[in-house]
Amino acid sequence: MEKTIKKSSLTISENGLEKKTSSKRLEVLKTYKIYIGGQFPRTESGRYYQPTNASGKKLANVCLSSRKDFRDAVVAARGAASGWSGRAAFNRGQILYRMAEMLEGRKAQFIEELIQQDSTKAKAEKEVNLAIDRLIYYAGWCDKYQQIYSAVNPVATSHFNFSVPEPTGVVSIIAPQADSLLGLVSVIAPVIAGGNTCIVLASETKPLCSVTFAEVLNSSDLPGGVVNILTGKPSELTSWFVDHMDVNATIYCESNSDVQKMMREKSALNLKRIFFYDKVKWNTDEGQSPYFIMDTQEIKTTWHPIENIAGSGAGY
């Protein structure tokens, strides 16, 4: 019996399809739900869609998230924002590292899902490894980018003056469509490493990893609401992602110029910061840098007088 279970759940052939086994055991299918505020609800809309792989096989019944789901997610993200940005940067680093640990532990499941979504075993392994390494990369940045991009400004008057980066707030992200896991991780990690919270719309055609990744997040000390993951159609949701008045920045990773135009127009509503990552090759080193963190940072400059008694010079 034990032997059979192993066979049916883990054996994978080169073409990615499960080997036919003689087992009579019925496989337990996974329900792919969305992730809002640390919970796994179904979409409030009750709708679903069925992404398929290249050979036409239906992958799952996936939540077709609605505008209301997005709005709920914004509420969750806003609620989590002050707690997350208020955490010690060192602690954020530890949590991102923990996320990498949990991802490493569930590597096999991600490889399997990637293969279901038309990847090869070698490619899938590489993608998962890269995703883990990317989290480690940003875990290390959490308490360092501030030092690189801050400044003590030598003003001419008798003031102490310094500029530091601060998270912009709530960020809505349309994740890269082509890279199911790596794309998702690459856009989430710099945003939360910088102390922001986010709502991410997963790849429409390859959504499986995103829901499983939410399970990783949920078991890795990341507070609920910091990352919220929706599945659904960018064609339906993108305009709401950039429309919402309580979202501070929006990231879009595709090169559709009509959508980009629409997004920049709508971003004017509350002057969201808007970024198009359509030329980034996520599977190279170009896909990671502290400049991605800085995109969703604001620079705050603080002034304070320095006491100057009767024109006295420095006492040392």
């Binding site: 001419a156 003056n161 400059t301 002034w303």
Partner: peptide, 9 residues
Amino acid sequence: KFDPSSPFG
């Protein structure tokens, strides 16, 4: 207070 070396925005 303003200064050329101090970022503003």
